[in-house]
Simulated scan of single mutants.
Amino acid sequence: MTHQGSAVDALPLRLLTRIVNEYGDAPRAAAGESGAPYPPADALGEEATALWAQRAAPPEKALVETANLLHPVFAAASGGECADRLNTLIAEAGLTPAMAAREWDVREQWRTSRPGRTLLAAATLALLDHLRGDPDASRLGTCLGEACVDVYIDHSPARRRQYCSLTCQNRARTRAYRAAKRAAGSSPSAVTP
Rank of each mutant, 00 (worst) to 15 (best):
Y152N: 05
L128C: 08
A62V: 10
L69M: 03
T174H: 10
A98E: 05
T96V: 03
P59D: 14
D136T: 08
A101Y: 03
Q109A: 15
E146S: 12
L89N: 12
L69Q: 11
L70E: 00
A67H: 06
L95W: 06
A121F: 06
S113E: 02
A53P: 04
T66S: 07
R175M: 13
E108D: 08
A180I: 08
P115Y: 00
E60T: 05
P157R: 14
L127F: 00
R111M: 10
S113F: 08
Q54R: 11
A176H: 14
L69A: 07
T124L: 02
R139G: 14
T88D: 15
A50G: 13
Y177W: 11
A83F: 10
C168F: 10
V73T: 04
T174P: 01
I153L: 03
P135C: 12
L69Y: 06
A137P: 07
D84S: 15
A184R: 02
L89G: 09
G141A: 13
T49H: 12
A122P: 12
T174M: 06
T142Y: 13
S186A: 15
G185F: 05
Q162E: 14
R114Q: 06
T124F: 07
R85I: 04
L63A: 00
V151W: 07
S138Y: 11
R114P: 02
R139A: 09
R139P: 15
A100C: 09
A50V: 00
P58I: 09
R55V: 01
L128S: 04
R55D: 05
A56F: 01
W52G: 01
P58V: 03
I153P: 04
C143V: 15
L86G: 10
R111F: 01
Y152Q: 01
R114N: 10
V151L: 05
I90S: 03
T112D: 00
P58K: 03
R139Q: 09
A183K: 00
G141I: 13
C148H: 04
P58Q: 05
W104F: 02
T124A: 00
G79S: 14
T174R: 12
A91Q: 15
Y152G: 03
G185V: 01
T49S: 13
A184I: 07
R85L: 12
A122C: 14
P115V: 07
G133P: 04
I153M: 01
P115N: 00
T124H: 08
L166H: 15
L125M: 03
W52Y: 11
A98Q: 07
P135T: 15
S187T: 14
A121N: 02
E146C: 02
